[in-house]
Amino acid sequence: MEAISITNSDIKSYYTCNQLAEYRQLFGTFELNKDGHITCTQLKKYLTGNYMKKSNEELEEIVNEADLSGCGRITFDNFMQLILNRDLEEKRTEIKSLFDSFDSNRDGYIDIAELSAVFFSLNSKDENQIITVFKQLDRNNDGKVDFEEFHSFMAQGDDLKL
């Protein structure tokens, strides 16, 4: 998985204060000497024992992704970046699955006919509404919606303006 450059403000805007407190508590379960860091060995041991049935290679990949400095220690910010990267990747996968359900001919685009089919399957046959939604999704106005347009719209949580 490709790491995304994330700032503390990104993390604070994505998670609630309660969620951050829960992650801080989880981080504290690894941080045995309370020095602000956890070792890669501690993280690997915890992941193996409590959450994941992963191969050594997969565990090494996770640890290397979190250990941004390469020094064998992970800060809370590194830990949160790992969690946020994984959450964003999971959300992207969910959005891709939804996009694929719209893209019935599998050409990599949603056209007005495919969007209409989805609306009709939901018993919404208002052509003006379908056109309005399509225009909101088709951000570059090329008459088709690619995955990046769809993802951008869905990831931002934009509301459809009907």
Rank of each mutant, 00 (worst) to 15 (best):
M52C: 07
R73C: 02
A66V: 05
G72K: 08
L43S: 02
E65H: 12
D77R: 08
Q81E: 03
I74T: 00
M80C: 11
I62R: 07
Q42H: 13
D77I: 09
N78L: 13
F76G: 12
S69G: 04
G70R: 03
S69C: 13
Q42P: 15
E61C: 11
E60N: 12
M80I: 03
M80F: 08
N78S: 15
I38W: 07
E60Y: 11
F79E: 07
F76W: 02
Y51P: 02
Y51W: 09
S69W: 01
T39E: 06
E60T: 10
T39F: 06
S69P: 00
N78Q: 15
L47D: 03
L82R: 10
C71T: 09
D77M: 08
M52Q: 07
C71Y: 08
D67Y: 04
L43K: 01
L82H: 03
K44A: 13
N78R: 11
N78C: 15
N50V: 10
I74Q: 01
A66N: 00
D67L: 10
C40G: 10
C40E: 12
C40H: 05
T39C: 10
L47M: 14
G72Y: 11
N64I: 02
C40K: 03
T48D: 06
L59T: 10
M80V: 03
D77A: 11
T41R: 10
L82V: 11
R73D: 10
G49N: 11
